[in-house]
Design a protein around this nucleic acid. Structure first.
Lengths: 200, 200
DNA sequence: ATTAATTTAGACTTCTCAGTCCAGAATCGA
DNA sequence: TCGATTCTGGACTGAGAAGTCTAAATTAAT
């Protein structure tokens, strides 16, 4: 049996994700199988509950980009990053969550900031550092702008898929499609940033 | 003097954009300098007003990508598209609007769909057709996938900037920065999709 | 077993907001 | 000018939701 607090957070995550901030505390209490008073005892008020949920979720988000396997060829590495992104960060659950944050950040600007720091920012940072290293090894050529190149690679992966998801359009990717897209992205990126360039 | 209806739409656009769907009809009536009853006479109810505002706005959104000047070199054309995007579609106003739609599409899924069709979808379509033509002329090489290439170019432009804007982070680009980014994007794209490729 | 703390159920207060109603003022058409 | 339409201001209703309160039940600690 989960702790009372954990059950509340779980229910809150699910309901906020699917309905946005416009969920009644009663609804959360019901789904968590907890009395309203307990909910207020644990979290004080709705806003604090919301923030606690964000903080709780942040921990889960940091894992996907695991840039530990350093010694692979850039193309393999990039394919893998893309694959992981499509598998974990791009499914309807995570996109729904992202969507909810976007909606809520209108009311609580600091939520958007916090999400950015915990999520996109960290991925960007990690990827950028890896690219800088590869550039020193002569296996990438970002023109001395690994930060921009990392931005562009993430945009390449997420781009249109994520935009559609945000607007509520279906975004399920079959495994084969994930594979195809992942390879395609790595390919495009290597054409633009690989070491053997012609133009520029 | 604007018509009553136009004034209401203007006020609604502004308020919905900045505060999301959680704006009171009273507030809208006040800003529009109109009585509440008039507001209801004109639009029936809040949801219809919201939809009318979307429809009204849609018309404005279709202009920016003006793919009429066909005979320029791809690089120039792409730079121009990017420049237009950064200038018109990426400022705080338009991003705020996009953000609001994302938030509302949780409550009204068809809004997200409508926005996608009227905005991103049309840009994608136009760009994709242009790329297909350029490919026939031998001035681009998208590997027979102009649709994907167009997706990627738009992602390249919008990518991180838009994501930050959605989360409420500042996103103002100075003119010089717009110029730099526009050129950079066209450059990257040409490296990956220009005709003189090495890898593949 | 007894005491202290926590949980429960649900009634209650207060507030905000969508939408209605109405009586009088302004506007418009012929 | 006069009749019809539209707009105004503001009171009003009804619903939903945040947060409080209380008395009883449950759980945990000694």
């Amino acid at each position: 049996m989960l702790s009372v607090r954990a059950r509340i957070l779980e229910a809150a995550t699910e309901l906020f994700r699917t309905h946005g901030y416009d969920v009644s505390m009663d609804a959360i209490a019901n789904v968590a199988n907890v009395s309203k008073q307990t909910l207020y005892n644990q979290f004080g008020n709705k806003e604090d509950l919301f923030k606690a949920m964000i903080a709780d979720h942040g921990a889960l988000m940091r894992a996907p980009l695991n840039v530990s396997a350093l010694e692979r060829h850039p193309r393999e590495m990039l394919t893998d990053v893309a694959r992981q992104f499509y598998t974990h960060a791009c499914g309807p659950t995570e996109v729904g969550y992202y969507r909810m944050i976007v909606g809520a950040s209108q009311q609580f600007p600091e939520m958007g900031q916090a999400y950015y720091e915990a999520g996109p920012r960290q991925m960007l940072e990690a990827l950028s550092q890896w690219m800088a290293r590869e550039e020193r090894l002569g296996r990438l050529d970002t023109g001395g702008e690994p930060q921009l190149a990392a931005e562009h690679f993430l945009s390449l992966i997420a781009g249109h898929i994520e935009a559609k998801g945000l607007l509520g359009l279906s975004v399920e990717l079959a495994p084969a499609e994930i594979e195809r897209r992942a390879r395609y992205c790595a390919d495009i990126f290597m054409r633009a940033f690989g070491p053997q360039r012609l133009l520029g």
